[in-house]
């Protein structure tokens, strides 16, 4: 059984603001590196935003602050009206590595966030939902398989399920598919788009790939390094839903070129 499509997705920034970052700065005390300087950003319900920028410009730092994993040095992060002061249930996160635990089956891995927060009994009740999610990402039949037997792409699909099991309002994604080959990555991106639409989730994706950012996003936050700050926020007004063949349209090429120009400028500084 697939969850019913919650809302018809209606394109670029919709809905009310869910995530609000105001003047966020981060200096790592350990080495006095200024990783972020004065980042302000608003994400709207159901929108898809990507962050792009050269390595070391603070993308992961930004994500960790948004997730409540590390505190900002200055500034404020508010999610759904409540300031973020630590890890939260309404935040789902995914990293470059699937990080499934090899001693747990696919389903046991997926219900782990429930087990941690609500205990074993609640996790048991969530198994049914884990099965549904596995079906959504095309892993039906792999419920009781151990991660060692899953390919890289399948493992990432399972970790998508683990992220979704707590029904988070926002998805924070740190280069989730960059370890996959290009074909798998394109396919996973299209599925990510479908899942976000079905769950009406707000997504925030860190990526290295301009193409990936453009094909998925309503808005692209282009960052520049040393110290990490926002160079420009680019709106992508390609129609929804996006398909891979849009990558060959002139409009797509234009946006890609524009962002590449911004990134090159950032490098010169």
């Amino acid at each position: 059984m697939k969850p019913a499509v919650a809302l018809e997705y209606s394109g670029a920034p919709v809905g009310a603001p869910v995530y609000d970052l105001a003047h966020v700065s981060k200096t790592y005390a350990r080495n006095a590196v200024v990783a972020l300087e004065d980042v302000s950003l608003t994400l709207r319900k159901g929108s898809f935003t990507s962050v792009i920028g050269s390595s070391g410009c603070g993308k992961s730092t930004l994500l960790k602050i948004m997730a409540g994993l590390i505190p900002p040095t200055k500034g404020r992060v508010v999610l759904q009206g409540v300031p973020v002061t630590g890890p939260r249930r309404d935040i789902g996160m995914m990293f470059q590595q699937a990080t499934l635990f090899p001693w747990k089956t696919a389903v046991e891995n997926i219900v782990l966030p429930i087990e941690i927060r609500d205990g074993k009994a609640a996790a048991k009740k969530a198994v049914e939902k884990a099965h549904q999610l596995l079906d959504v990402v095309g892993l039906k039949g792999f419920e009781n398989v151990y991660p060692n037997e899953l390919s890289g792409g399948m493992a990432q699909r399972a970790s998508i399920c683990r992220m979704l099991i707590t029904e988070p309002a926002v998805l924070l994604l740190d280069e989730p598919f960059s370890a996959l080959d290009e074909l798998s990555r394109d396919m996973m991106n299209m599925e990510l788009q479908r899942i976000c639409r079905e769950q009406n989730a707000t997504a925030f994706l860190v990526t290295h790939s301009i193409q990936e950012a453009v094909i998925l996003s309503d808005e692209i936050v282009v960052m520049k390094p040393r110290p990490g700050r926002i160079a420009e926020i680019v709106e992508v007004d390609l129609p929804r839903p996006r398909t891979l063949d849009m990558m060959t349209t002139p409009k797509f090429g234009e946006i890609v070129d524009y962002i590449r120009g911004l990134l090159d400028k950032g490098e010169d500084m």
Partner: peptide
Amino acid sequence: ADENARMLFKTMGASRMQTLIKMKLPT
């Protein structure tokens, strides 16, 4: 246990004891 696993447990709001027993020890 690698950085990713630790971070993951942090995002799940795991206590130190839970992290030790459910992740670090098995790893």
